[in-house]
Design a protein around this nucleic acid. Sequence first.
RNA 1: CGGGGUGUGGCUCAGUUUGGUAGAGCGCCACGUUCGGGACGUGGAGGCCGGAGGUUCGAAUCCUCUCACCCCGACCA
Length: 476
Amino acid sequence: MAAKLTPPSEDYPRWYQEVIQRAELAENAPVRGSMIIKPYGYAIWEQMQSVLDGMFKDTGHVNAYFPVLIPESFLKKEAEHVEGFSPELAVVTHAGGKKLEEPYVVRPTSETIIWDTYRNWIQSYRDLPLLINQWANVMRWEMRPRLFLRTTEFLWQEGHTAHATKEESHEETLRMLEVYARFAEDYMAMPVIQGEKSEREKFAGAVKTYSIEAMMGDGKALQAGTSHDLGQNFAKAFDVKYQSAEGKEEYVWATSWGVSTRLVGALVMAHGDEQGLVLPPRLAPIQTVIVPIYRGEEQMATVLEACSKMEAELKAAGARTHLDDRDQFRPGYKFNEWELKGVPVRIEVGPRDLEKGEVVLAFRHNGEKKTLPLEAVAKEVMSVLDEAQKGLFEKALKLREERTHSVDSYDEFKERVNDGGFFLCHWDGTTETEEKIQQETKATIRNIPFDAPDEAGECMVTGKPSARRVIISKAY
RNA sequence: CGGGGUGUGGCUCAGUUUGGUAGAGCGCCACGUUCGGGACGUGGAGGCCGGAGGUUCGAAUCCUCUCACCCCGACCA
């Protein structure tokens, strides 16, 4: 804890690793690519879960749980799906001391087992829509693991819905993308761009994939959530039909959508700085931390008493509060530690303050300090946290705007892409051009933003016509 | 799978070239002094040196095999 963090400007990936380890979010597990999520990291995930779960319920969804093991043959029923996922499957071949008749796949995602089940659950249009979410772990054997961003096992939620019409399923796909965008912006304080994925980047088995894309502190993009319009692909593969009001037999229309523990990594990289983590108040497990300052036993007693009182008041006011009464560390040490852990507001309570009937509030997101009368703290804490939440979002938005560029020349693009940032460019819509860009620059088309204005132009690579700009960026 | 590298207390690493029976800093424990931006002193605990085999009077060090991890490439999002 004594040494300083590697500055993000010097070595961003190293800074990221250090923040995660030293803020005690997670550590590497014995199995390559898997991680142990530590209590503080898990507490952040629990906050996320709790908010998202509420949003899913508010949009009419219910939770269920499907098994982690899926018969291998299920994966093979949807051609694109198996092709996309087979390289990264973990497969159970032995169990109970015997070789299995049919291997079981550890789920990389649950479409197959869920659609196999939905076949039995859906008979009539009256059974639709079926709106189910699942909180689960999944496993994808990644070659380049990175804590939170890409681990072999990760936690997520996956929504799987079934609808009577194409229009309804499309609406659902976009509704849930909007839910993710609201969550990212209003809770994570992380501005995102909603848009459609290119043909090449879409989910294996989907008709269309939509994503929210966020910019990280180094200017790279991170896909923070996806929502898929699955059309009738899975219904056909698993023979899921319903009888319409007119008595006709129809295949159902499907969606799936998910966000994962990757969002914890997104939080680190969206807001973190030289001091470490910066958590948005609405998701911070600890929103205010009280650090007592004293000399000698006598002062200690007085100060701690005032601190306990304040702790109770803050909790009553609705702020998640921690009193750091550890006697073995001095205040300076604690300041650094709580900054590293990203706590939004620190409250310093010392003899000098108590004499004046005040305390000092220090804000993590902008480093500012402010003095408040003792009795005002509990009254103002929630609005102070709100301000910090807004301030953090504004800061992230400003950073993104500064690092977003419209570029029309491929030469200019190639020159600037290594500096990071989002590039709004015209693209001819073909996979060939997309691949060429990736091969030559390692940047990818993040998505085709919904809110991009209609603007006729020419593809920066081929000069062919293009109707609007897409976001191109290097990505995690 | 190809190229390169690393395995030594909880962490970061020295020691390996030239074999002689294991060290430092941080962390941890105890006591005392400290405490408004990462305190200090004194004492202490903790390691069959990734694993197996071999050479030798003697191996962290040399040889053989093996395992794991990291970086670059390939692959993947």
